[in-house]
Each structure stands twice: as C-alpha cells, then as structure tokens.
Design a protein around this nucleic acid. Structure first.
Length: 468
RNA sequence: GGCCUUAUCGUCUAGUGGUUAGGACGCAGGAUUCUCAUUCCUGUAACACGGGUUCGACUCCCGUUAAGGCUACCA
C-alpha cells in the first residue's frame, strides 16, 4: 500500500545554517508531519576541505530553535544511518564498484588543468562545455602510463543519450536531453563521492519518498535519475522550491543579506515564531488566506498545490513587522522568559518583579529582543543627558520650569501614584497654570527617561513609584 | 554559448476567460496623544513587451525581453 512519506534536509556543513536551508527544511518537515511521515537530517560532509563539526552544531541548534525536529539523523533515530556521508564511504564505494563492473562507469585520469583547458576551448568555439569522454576507452598501456605518472583517477559515470522525464511536484512535467550532459564525476580522485552520487544513493537507501529542495537543484535531477536508473533504484518524487533572493534579485548571499539563522536572527533577538511565519510566506500562500501562521497550524494547512513557482526576495521589513507582532502577542510571562533567555546573565533580569514591570512598558515598542536593554535602561538608572531635550519644541524655558515645579510640588506630597489619578491631577495642574498638557508631561517624561521617545509619563511615574 | 525555470503594486502574494484586479508589509495622510509605539480609518501603487486564439484576455498559445539556476573532482 501507500509507502511511508519520508523527506529529508541534507545540508553540507560548510557554513552556518542558512536561511535557504531553513526554508527548505521547513517545507520538508511540514510535508512529513502533515502526512505522518518521517523527516530526516543527513549531513553531506563529503567536501572534506570545507566541512566542519562546528557547522553541524550550528545547523542542528538552528533547526531546534526553529522548532524543526528530525526523526532520524545525528544523535537521534536510526535504522538507515549513519547520517553523516563521511561515514558512508564504503557504501558509495560498493555502488561505484558495481557500476564499474557493469561498465557503466570508468576511471578518468584527466588532470584539473586538462579539463579546464578543454572547457575553455569549447567555450571559445562557442560550443557547450562538456566532458569529451576521452578516458572512456583508454588502453591498458595508457592506463599504466598514467598510473606511473602517479595520477589518481576520478570515476566518471557514462551518460547514455536519452530523454529524461519526470514530474516535479511544483514545476510540473520536466524533460531533459541527457546527451547534453557529458560523463560526470561520481567519485573524486580522493575517493570521496560527489554530491550527485552520494545523494542519489542515500536517498534510495534511506527510503526518501520525496526529495524537496531548492530550485537550484532542478538541473541536477535528471543526472540523479540517470544514476538511480543505472543502480536499479526506485526514483523518488521530486519537488523544487522557488529560491530566496537578495533585493537585487541575485541568489541570496551572505554578502548582501542577513542569512545566518544563528548570527543574524537568533543573536539579534528575533523569535522563532516570526522566522517560521516569514519563511513559509516565501513561496507558499494559504488557501484560506491569513497572514499569521504557527508551525502547528501549518501542519494542517500546508500542501504543494499552494506552493508558488516564482522566487521571493528577502524582505527585512516584513520580518521585523512579524517579529514585532509576535512580541506584542506574547503574554508578559512569555516575554520575560524569552527576554531573560536572550539576555542571559544580565543585571536587568536580577529583580524579576522590576523586570516584568519594565517589560510591560516597552513590549509594544519592541521590534526585537535586542532592543530591550536600551529601552528599559531608564528604569534602572537615572538619565544624565536630558538637559538638551527637556524643553518641548513648542514651549519655553519658563513654562517648562514652571510645569516641573508645580508638578513636583504636587508629586512630593501625593502618595497615590496610580496612573489614572496621576493623569487627572497633572492635567489639572497644567490647566490651572495655563500650560498645555505637553508642557507639563514632556519635561517629566524626559527628565525620567532621558529620551525623546519612550513610554508615557503616567505609566513611567506609576512604574517607578515614589522615592522613599 | 547550451539546457532549464520564472514573470500581478517597491516587497510577499490572491486571482485560473467577463473582477471597480483583493489582502499583507512598506510608504503617505488622518483619528487617539506629552513623545515614541500600539490600535483604528483613509490613501498610494501592479497584470514586463509584442503577436495571436476568442464576442471578450492578467488568465490560453507563440515569440521577445528580463531575472534566476545548472552546465565543477562545491553542494
């Protein structure tokens, strides 16, 4: 009957968790969860030069932060592991041998220089650059000679000319002419498999039913299908997601945009809820409309029919809006929890009661958690730099002084610092002295906060309370 | 260069032959107001271009243009 739905995310740990990877992971996870399937994390660390364990940690931490958990992968689940490709080398070797045995692959002794030269010549002659296949039929003598020269061979897959067809879940019917490909490398001369080869094998062995990935892999798909065919593998379903772009419409890159989940979003005080909501809205739109989506709701609502085909541009403003929205939506307790997690060991957090009150005043003004210290600072220490800004724009020194004196007179005698009674009285004082409300309230607020923009005077007065 | 993909407000998108082309972010204005923010209201702004098909195209077909991807012993 219907096979189990198994999706995967297969990042290569050559960098921190990237927005694009998180985006793809989200779609895979959602599909698996929606179908009661499994979501697998596979580490594609075959690029020994650039891969590092540090990045693996960054990637797993980032996914966990987002709320995307995996059923199988590093440190959890098993059955089809190991989930590091670097630990699966013997498997790839076995399949490589099989292909050699069946004369579907051959050793190529061409050097990097030779290949580059060949490509350049082809480009110059306005021909499609493609490996000539000259090592396909090497004589014994030639092989011996290359070996004596100390050349280590790569293994190339023989591409038979044919039309490769498949139906993409998102893009629809696809057809490629393999005669345009040229024999591609499946085992590098250092013995490591290429992404093309290892991916095809692992997707089969790990029983991946749906390969959902970025559109940048669309052109790789026919090659992997060719490989799978040669190996007698079942072909999984493929779905290629539209990419995320920089504002200049180039492929999203570190140079031009924030891309690291850890560095650019977690550390800057973004909420996972906002990030998820932001990511899902790029390339997907809910059938029944709605702008706000949480992971749990998405599981029921997500489907491939509503996935778009065109790429999205990363919009920082939209993310900021979403983050502010989720901050405002939190209960005070939730905000305090998120804030103290974010701030870590921080003086502000010490007095919990005080911290809560301070947060309640700035909650609706926050775009992200990192703005908290600056916004609640006045609550903990007296401002020193308010002299320049204490006189309201439309007022005078005299009026400001008068307002301050009159309200001080009242406040020093008053014990009820509830914001409502405060408001009543202070407004009355303004009126009695022929001052505008602003001429009384602005100076008080600025003297207390040292800021031109802050919570309101009554709220601050109430929160700070009367000095003993 | 070749192959592939894509094309609705600045951005994310709804739309599947007949709509005043809808929503959200942004921006502008307004209400509230001591500032900022919140909230509410109003406004702004789009079917890339050219041919068809059709009584009628944003919608279907073909081109063009533009953007992106692949064309690596990166993934």
């Amino acid at each position: 009957m219907a096979e189990e739905i198994r999706t995967r995310i297969a990042p290569s740990p050559t960098g921190a968790l990237h927005v694009g990877t998180a985006h793809t992971a989200l779609f895979n996870w959602l599909f698996a969860r929606a179908k009661s399937g499994k979501f697998i994390l596979r580490v594609e660390d075959t690029d020994t030069e650039r891969s590092s364990e540090e990045f693996v940690d960054d990637i797993t931490d980032g996914l966990i932060w987002l709320g995307i958990d995996w059923d199988e992968g590093p440190e959890r689940g098993d059955g089809y592991g190991p989930y590091y490709q670097s630990q699966r080398l013997e498997i790839y070797k076995k399949y490589a041998d099989q292909l050699i045995e069946e004369k579907k692959a051959y050793h190529c002794y061409c050097t990097q220089e030779e290949l580059t030269k060949e490509r350049e010549e082809q480009t110059l002659a306005k021909k499609a650059p493609k490996y000539s296949g000259r090592c396909r039929n090497l004589s014994e003598a030639e092989i011996t000679k290359f070996k004596e020269e100390g050349r280590a061979p790569a293994l190339r897959f023989i591409v038979e000319p044919k039309q490769v067809k498949f139906k993409d879940l998102i893009k629809g019917s696809m057809e490629f002419d393999s005669s345009l490909f040229g024999d591609f490398v499946i085992l590098k001369s250092n013995g490591m498999p290429t992404f093309m080869f290892a991916g095809a094998i692992d997707d089969f062995l790990m029983k991946i039913s749906h390969v959902i990935r970025g559109e940048d892999h669309l052109s790789n798909t026919p090659r992997q299908i060719l490989l799978a065919d040669a190996l007698n593998f079942n072909i999984p379903e493929y779905g290629h997601l539209p990419l995320i772009l920089n504002p200049d419409r180039t492929k999203l890159s570190k140079r031009k945009n924030p891309t690291s989940i850890t560095e650019d979003f977690i550390k800057k005080g973004y909420l996972p809820e906002a990030m998820i909501n932001f990511l899902i809205l790029m390339g997907w739109s809910p059938e029944k409309g709605g702008d706000f989506w949480a992971l749990d709701d998405l599981i029921n609502e997500f489907n491939f029919e509503s996935v778009g085909k065109s790429p999205s541009i990363f919009d920082q403003q939209k993310l900021d809006f979403l983050n502010g929205y989720y901050i405002r939506k939190m209960s005070l307790g939730e905000l305090a929890k998120a804030a103290s997690d974010f701030l870590g060991k921080n003086d502000f957090v010490l007095d919990k009661q005080k911290f809560l009150i301070a947060l309640s005043l700035v909650q609706e003004r926050l775009k992200n958690l990192s703005e908290i210290p600056e916004q609640i600072e006045f609550f903990y220490k007296e401002p020193s730099n308010y002299k320049e800004i204490i006189v309201p724009k439309k007022s005078t020194n005299e009026n400001t002084l008068k307002g301050l004196e009159e309200s001080y007179k009242y406040l020093s005698e008053e014990n009820d610092f509830g914001r409502d009674s405060l408001e009543q009285t202070l407004r009355a004082i303004a009126k009695k002295n022929d001052l505008s409300a602003g001429e009384v309230l602005w100076p008080i607020r600025v003297a207390l906060t040292g800021k031109t923009a802050s919570p309101g005077a009554f709220e601050i007065l109430e929160a700070l309370g009367k000095k003993e």
